[in-house]
């Protein structure tokens, strides 16, 4: 048998082990929401507001999906006070997160903005509960050094 034909560990069926390997890393343009990342670096979470109809967006976007306006959207700091809508702790992790410990993801409702944010729940919340009071905090994540926003205790 050629070397690339191997036996499946469980079933012993012969499988062809692909010699080609694909490593994909995307380059995602963010020029129209660059202000969001500049503010994030200062610890501020920005949403966008439509100057025509007043619609608010998070994630931030550079056009208005509500009224169709496509001029300059207004970037503004979100009032992050709100409450936890739901959460889950991820045990079976994807390959690119396999070096992380188990992490808890939640969705918080920002009460004044009437917007939701999905993020990890940080260590200030040991026992998450639906309905508990929350804020959003920007932190440098230990595991990968990335500047990320978290759902946190006020």
């Amino acid at each position: 048998m050629p070397g690339y034909i191997v036996k499946d560990e469980k079933t012993k069926n012969p499988v062809l082990l692909d010699l080609r390997e694909l490593d994909i890393k995307y380059r995602i343009p963010v020029s129209r929401i660059e202000k969001f990342y500049q503010a994030l670096d200062q610890g501020i979470i920005m949403g966008t507001k439509c100057p025509v109809c007043g619609a608010r967006f998070f994630p931030p976007q550079a056009w208005c999906s509500d009224c169709g306006y496509s001029g300059e959207m207004e970037f503004y700091p979100l009032d992050t006070h709100g409450h936890l809508m739901t959460f889950t702790k991820i045990f079976a992790k994807p390959k690119s997160f396999s070096s992380f410990g188990d992490y808890t993801v939640g969705i918080a409702h920002l009460d004044k903005e009437d917007l939701n944010i999905l993020a990890w729940i940080d260590e200030s919340i040991q026992k998450p509960e639906v309905g508990m009071e929350t804020v959003i905090k920007v932190e440098k994540r230990k595991e990968d050094g990335a500047t990320v926003y978290f759902i946190a205790s006020p």
Binding site: T86, I90, K93, Y103, V105, W120, V130, G131
Partner: peptide
């Protein structure tokens, strides 16, 4: 940034539903 999985997405529904 958040590595949500397919079970994770539905788990968000499950937490909210069981709580409600």
């Amino acid at each position: 940034f958040f590595g949500l999985t397919f079970p994770g997405y539905y788990a968000l529904y499950a937490t909210a539903y069981l709580n409600r």
